[in-house]
Simulated assay, not measured.
Amino acid sequence: MATELSTGAVAAAFHERQRAREAARLSALAQPSYPADRVRDEPDCGLRTPIQRDRDRIVHSKAFRRLKHKTQVFVAPAGDHFRTRLTHTLEVTGIARTVARALDLNEDLVEAIGLGHDLGHPPFGHIGEAVLDDCLREHDGRRFRHFEHSLRVVTVLEPLNLNASVRDGILSHSGRSPQPQTLEGRIVRLVDRIAYLNHDIDDAIRAGVLDERALPAGPIALLGTTGSQRIDTLVHDLVEHSEEAGDIVQGAQAAVEMDALRDFMFSEVYLAEAARREHVKIETVLCKLWRYYLEDPERVPDGGGIPGADPAQRVVDYLAGMTDRFAVNAFETLFVPRGFEA
């Protein structure tokens, strides 16, 4: 409820000033910040646009805080410099803002989408996603996809009442989902791939899983020998071709070389022998937890999950929200024998 301390001349003039600024500065192809388009109507903030408010709601959510302890590629790495799901999120968001700024699109919108796009990722990265998907499919034929679960997080598990353009960008950020409706959402979708490919190479080399000399010659020759060079090349290519096309697109040659780099990473890192060994361990942890909680969903803390959800969904919601270390601790507590002190 507004009070005398929350009103004033700055707040009173904010909406019109922001609308005028966007009208003068943003491309005609940009998604404007006004009017708000929420499922539940609410008064606008006096000092933030509706999209800036969504960004803040995402950053203050519990799901966002948990990203710092969720795997990007390497599970529970011992070193301090490996990416987590949180650092990946921040890297994607920063690159996406650069692209939006260059194209005069809505930076606040790409920031909100970028910060929220991976909120639904389960523990243990894409391996964890595959295991939960297998569990759910075997149970009743449903699927678990992290991009769909990201939307569930912000609409059901932590209902943030986000704008439609932010919700659409979160849901549509994956290559397995339909194209986003806004150019800002399409930026995040493409930049997500640019970021993770190059940062995963850096982490794989640091982990000793990949020899830098083994990187495919074609993509490296065109895109650059370092991660920063490759990202810079791909971003410049993206903004130039997007400006010309009036859409978010890569140049044909850059797209081909980036796909070749992606194929190399799947073959040599993501699906390599070391990753398959971890897959077996992760499958053991998550499948045991899945069966334990599905046997009696009331074992799930906080009353068994979201009221009204069916038992399998309640268990999936709980498991997907776990961090890596929480999942391992839960497994050890439930299934690993403990010694007794005299």
Rank of each mutant, 00 (worst) to 15 (best):
L90D: 01
R97M: 15
L109S: 04
G116S: 06
E111Q: 13
T89L: 14
H88R: 10
L86W: 11
A96S: 14
V92G: 00
H117K: 07
H117V: 12
R101Q: 14
E91P: 02
V99W: 04
V110K: 01
G120T: 11
H88L: 13
V110N: 01
T87A: 05
I95G: 00
G120F: 08
H121E: 08
A96W: 04
G114K: 02
I95N: 01
E107F: 04
I95T: 07
T84A: 11
H117E: 15
H88T: 03
V92Q: 03
G120D: 11
T84K: 06
D104L: 15
H117I: 11
R83E: 15
L109Y: 05
L115G: 01
G94M: 09
V110F: 04
T93H: 03
A96F: 04
L103I: 07
G120A: 07
T87G: 03
D104F: 13
V99S: 02
N106F: 09
R97A: 15
G94D: 13
R85E: 08
V92T: 06
A112C: 06
R97W: 05
R83P: 11
E111P: 00
G120C: 13
N106T: 12
T87H: 01
G116A: 14
T98E: 13
L90G: 00
D104K: 14
L90P: 00
H121R: 07
R83K: 11
V110M: 06
L103C: 09
R85Y: 00
D118P: 03
R101Y: 11
A100H: 06
A102Q: 13
D104M: 14
L103N: 03
T98D: 09
R83V: 10
I113P: 03
A100K: 05
E107S: 06
R97E: 14
T84M: 13
T84N: 10
R97F: 07
R97K: 15
D118E: 12
H88K: 09
A112L: 10
V99P: 02
T98H: 02
L119N: 06
D108A: 14
D108Y: 08
R85P: 00
T98F: 01
D108S: 13
A112G: 03
H88E: 11
A100P: 06
N106H: 08
G116R: 04
R101A: 13
E111T: 07
D108M: 09
L105P: 00
T87R: 01
V92W: 03
T89Q: 08
R83H: 13
E91G: 10
L90A: 03
L86G: 00
N106G: 09
H121C: 10
R97D: 05
H117G: 11
L115E: 05
